[in-house]
Amino acid sequence: MTKTAERPRPLKEKKNKNKWNSKNQWKGWLYLLPALVLLAVFTLWPIINTIRISFMVTADGSGYSYALDMRHVPFHFGFDNYAKVAAYGDFLNCLKNTLLLTVITVPISTMLALLIAVGLNSIKFLKKIFQTIFFLPYVTNSIAIGMVFMAMFTMIGVTPGMEPESIGIINKIIEAFGGQRIDWVNQQSSEAANMFVLCTYIVWNALPFKILVLLGGLQNVDKQYYDAAKVDGASRWRVFWRVTVPLLSPMIAYVVITGFIGGFKEYSSVVGIFGDSMGPITHDYRWDTMVGFIVRNIDLYQGRASAAAIILFLIIFAVTMVNMYVSKKRVHY
């Protein structure tokens, strides 16, 4: 304790504080009780238990499962769950898909959202209407609209060697431009075609939040900077890169970080488009993701699912740290 800390405080304040203190000690905990009990059971315990069971294996090397636990099969400490997950071909596919989708969609949606936000910020007439329209995807059910995207891209009544019954509106537009129709999501579809559909949908879904945050940031930017740039005769392009982007950099960093976190947890967009099989017919699980892997293993192989969840957490944690480090260096203030 330093001397300054011991300096007597004004009498009145101290007295007051003590009075409320003694009276409300138990009251504070009482008010918190429901939340604390629920958090202990459904948040704190899961953290401990998920780490625990990810390291539990039986004598014959199979991982933890609730069913085995119920039969009192003994478990011991081991890394078999992790080894199994890493060796599992499906998991590597999930990891690859998740990484690909994230790395492609985050930069695209961020750039697009930035352009839209800058555009919105520089108009007055119709601004509110545009803002509302751009926010609409956010308030929709991502599974439901995924089904609409599927309906727009899919061909109906596909039989090899014959004209399909219907080619879908997107292919119709392509043909109207004189292009060749593409098998986007049906049996013969290529990975690239599937990827295009998925990325389009994910970007469509990710835009509203990013626009909202970036526009909020833009509205707080002091107009003086733009006036100064105008006086200096800077071009629009230069103003964008030298004034807008640096001033917005904290918001951009925030949007990129949350985008990466959301990207690694991608699941419902894929389910929305392809259904539970997470891939075109005859290519089940082609677009399975990390969360997909966890969800599919939850009911039978909890050990494996836990190991995958811990790996997912570590990846998200690492990527967030890298993002924070980069943005600390690059963020303007």
Partner: peptide, 18 residues
């Protein structure tokens, strides 16, 4: 706890719910 992805809770919560 907000930093931890929800999927991590889901596994144990499923066991608890069972």
């Amino acid at each position: 706890t907000m930093m931890i992805p929800g999927e991590l809770f889901t596994i144990t919560n499923y066991i608890t719910a069972s």
